[in-house]
Simulated assay, not measured.
Amino acid sequence: MLFKVEMTVKIPHDMPEEIAADIKAREKAYAQKLQAQGQWLHLWRVAGSYANVSIFDVQSNEELQEIISQLPLFPYMEISVAPLCRHPSSIHEDDR
């Protein structure tokens, strides 16, 4: 199942920089692991903001919830999720 996930990060301004840097480093490692495993297909930065648009390929809503809730930045995110399906006019034969 494919999902479009939009994430906007809102780290508190009073969070110490060393704590924020640690969270960001753990977030990057986790995101790259999921990409290598093929669950996080695409990751785009939204220009001009601390936000991204991502495409996930998972087996269920529950799996997506588990993945997202394990993101180190999850407590500081506003997240929007939309399920995706193939468009009948698409020229591609797969979802990648």
Rank of each mutant, 00 (worst) to 15 (best):
F3D: 01
K4A: 07
V5S: 01
V5E: 02
V5Y: 00
E6V: 03
E6F: 05
E6W: 02
E6N: 05
M7Y: 02
T8C: 03
T8P: 02
V9P: 00
K10S: 06
K10T: 07
I11C: 04
H13P: 10
H13I: 10
H13D: 15
H13A: 15
M15I: 07
M15N: 12
E17I: 11
E17R: 10
E18V: 13
E18N: 15
E18Y: 10
E18T: 15
I19C: 14
A20L: 05
A20V: 10
A21T: 14
A21F: 12
D22S: 12
I23T: 04
I23P: 01
K24W: 08
K24R: 13
A25M: 12
R26E: 09
R26T: 08
E27W: 06
E27K: 08
K28V: 15
A29N: 13
Y30E: 02
A31T: 14
A31P: 05
A31L: 14
A31E: 08
A31Q: 12
Q32M: 15
Q32D: 14
Q32I: 11
Q32P: 07
Q32K: 14
K33S: 15
L34T: 10
L34E: 03
L34R: 05
A36K: 11
A36Y: 04
Q37W: 15
Q37L: 15
Q39I: 05
Q39A: 05
W40D: 00
W40N: 01
L41D: 00
L41G: 03
L41K: 05
H42T: 07
H42I: 07
W44H: 13
W44A: 13
R45D: 06
V46Y: 04
V46G: 04
V46I: 13
A47M: 14
G48K: 05
S49C: 09
S49F: 07
Y50E: 13
A51Y: 01
A51Q: 11
A51M: 06
N52D: 10
V53K: 03
V53P: 00
S54T: 13
S54H: 06
S54D: 12
I55M: 03
I55Q: 01
F56M: 03
D57M: 02
V58H: 00
V58R: 00
S60Q: 06
N61V: 08
N61S: 14
E63W: 02
E63D: 09
L64D: 01
L64M: 09
L64F: 04
Q65D: 07
E66P: 03
I67R: 02
I67S: 01
I68Q: 00
Q70S: 14
Q70P: 00
L71M: 12
L71W: 01
L71I: 04
P72T: 10
P72Y: 04
P72W: 05
L73S: 06
F74N: 08
F74A: 08
F74W: 11
F74C: 07
P75C: 04
P75T: 07
Y76P: 04
Y76D: 03
Y76E: 09
Y76G: 03
Y76A: 04
I79Y: 01
V81W: 01
V81P: 04
V81I: 13
A82Q: 10
A82F: 09
P83C: 00
P83K: 02
P83D: 00
P83H: 01
L84S: 05
L84K: 09
L84H: 06
C85W: 12
C85I: 06
H87Q: 09
P88T: 12
S89K: 12
S89I: 11
S90Q: 08
S90C: 13
I91Y: 11
E93D: 12
E93W: 10
E93T: 14
